[in-house]
Design a protein around this nucleic acid. Structure first.
Lengths: 347, 347
DNA sequence: TTCCTCTCGGACAACGTTGTCTCGGCTGGT
DNA sequence: ACCAGCCGAGACAACGTTGTCCGAGAGGAA
């Protein structure tokens, strides 16, 4: 009753053999037209759908790919997952999404669960560093990392260092000497790279590197707003902000508005909606999550066909969305009472 | 080599019988402690993970739930999916996400694919109206709809009509007589309900209902910006906007800013990030996607245990986020040259 | 000693599907 | 009319797991 019809039921209904039904649904062999018709009418009549698990069990290959990201509820990753799903559906593959929640232990469990599901491959935004346990599965379940890379795995990333440099350099070019970095999380590789770029730019321009301007902001927590407030409450607060992660950008911008501090120069790593509508409009480094997801999936399909391909690091180019926030000059701070603003405004 | 170890390999490695391994991994039977230890060390040594497909094939029950939504890349649905995944992981269930792309045909394919995957149940934001083909699977694969309801299925929704009424009424209370509705798509049930609420409020207040103020905005298209422009270009343009879908809200607000039309009163159905940072801040009807996802999943688990429960419609309460945009009065339009603004400002 | 209980292993079968193999029957060419 | 060749159908095993059933021991109690 509640049980689904099996290939056997279809066979008896169509008065053919089980094998013939199999041939029809797979469309591989030549089957006599009249038998094919009988089978197909029986299929629609019984509402038969082939049991993927049995098929996968027999053939050894699953019919889904896994995606493990920090959080599904994240503009960057939801766009990436969406791109993966678009691609996957055209190959008839399902997409199993899992969130790691920045927890290496949870990430490990999710990956093992995907392995037990026999997914064809995995797209992973890695959190943990110890993923050797995936080795035994590498050939039957290739892994491509996104956003972050991991030794020994194919990856799709952006050039964090170069992009972050260009963002910070624009702030320096607008005359800022104290630049806050909001969004640093030592656990995250990209956060470390972006911080390194930030510091390198500062020292290259003879500016002081002050750890107080780089508060810890654990990803996935709501700490960005508080981090902004503590940075602004410093004896020597920054006149500019580099938002190193788009996930915090909305919260930080919202907080600057509620504090009335729209005089801060800002560059965000990652575009976000309404960045062009707030005042001032926020200049952003643009990384395209759709391209990254699509590229990662394509690489995965290549690995399906040949699991022993050499490891490849694919980099997606970034852009810079010119808006107004990075052009705010330090001179405009003169109106601010809390801070002497006699610094020279460099052109 | 690349092949995964099977329960058989574990048994030989631990020098026990297959059955004992099965007993250990399922933790059901009493096994002698030393044997259990042998088995567990063999498991970690071989990196064994039980083959879920074989297990599901044998037991008949899958180990994943399916989620079918309009689009994954959507703040509302990505939050909902996230809530579902949070809940699912605690039960050891995977989440297979699929997007319907507003296409009934594609929705049907996705649902059939989920059926062939033997998912335990499905959470669905329905697009099509013809889902009778799911009937044969109802007992083995329960379905709960979210956001929209469908005859014969359990659902988790909000009271669209009442919430939309309260939003439009606030605009009327601020003195507006011509109110645009951006976000109508006749294919979507909620869009129709919200439009009905809008029209009812207008007639109850003796205001004209003008279809020109309700442009068609197909969901999933980028038509919202153009719709706003055409509405504003009418001979008698609106002085207020009711955004009936949060998916368009960001685009519409962005467009009002680029047009310099921040004088429009606005209420949005659905909150969105930076609604509190743009000027004016945008008042929103708040529907909580996390609650909806969690509730839908909980209902699904009830149906797992008892598939023949009576159908239930669960409604999640909505709130109203008081910001400033709904308080903009028509009198303030006096400065606008394109429109005589001599109308009385009703308190 | 005998009997009962308890733990573990071995032997099947089965879930639904597909690959392999074989055989029957048909077609076409001679 | 006969045979070669071929095409399609059916029988069977197997994928990895679990459930059932039974038997072999071991240990304790009567």
């Amino acid at each position: 009753m509640g049980d689904r019809p099996s290939i056997r039921d279809v066979a008896t209904a169509a008065k053919v053999s089980i094998k013939t039904v199999s041939r029809v649904v797979n469309g591989l062999d030549t089957v006599a037209p009249e038998l094919r018709d009988r089978v197909q009418t029986a299929i629609v009549e019984l509402n038969y759908v082939p049991n993927t698990m049995a098929r996968s069990l027999k053939t050894g290959a699953g019919n889904a790919v896994g995606v493990v990201v920090d959080s599904i509820d994240d503009v960057f990753f939801s766009a990436l997952v969406s791109a993966v799903e678009q691609r996957a559906i055209s190959l008839g593959l399902g997409v199993v999404v899992c969130s790691s929640g920045f927890d290496p232990e949870r990430e490990r469990n999710q990956l093992l669960r995907l392995a037990s599901q026999h997914v064809r491959g995995i797209i992973l935004a890695p959190v943990g560093e110890q993923l050797e346990f995936l080795e035994p599965y590498r050939t039957s379940m290739p892994v491509v990392t996104v956003d972050r890379s991991l030794p020994g795995f194919d990856s799709v990333t952006v050039d964090d260092y170069a992009a972050a440099r260009s963002g910070v350099e624009r702030l320096v070019a607008s005359g800022h000497r104290r630049i806050g970095l909001i969004g640093f999380d030592r656990r995250i590789q990209t956060a470390r790279r972006r911080r390194a770029a930030y510091e390198d730019v500062l020292v290259e321009h003879g500016l002081a590197v002050d750890a107080e301007l780089v508060p810890d902001v654990p990803l996935g927590s709501g700490a960005a707003r508080a981090a902004l407030r503590t940075v602004l409450a410093l004896p020597e607060p920054p006149s500019a902000l580099f938002l190193s992660n788009a996930r915090h950008a909305s919260a930080v911008i919202s907080e600057t508005h509620s504090l009335g501090r729209t005089d801060l120069a800002v560059v965000s790593f990652g575009d976000f909606s309404l960045a062009d509508a707030v005042d001032p409009t926020i200049s952003c480094i643009d990384q395209d999550p759709y391209s990254m997801g699509a590229l990662a999936f394509d690489r995965l399909t290549q690995l399906f066909q040949n699991p022993v391909l050499d490891r490849v690091d694919l980099q997606v180019p970034t852009g810079f969305v010119q808006r107004s926030s990075h052009l705010i000059r330090i001179a405009e701070l003169a109106a601010q009472p809390r801070r002497r603003a006699g610094k020279v405004s460099i052109s």
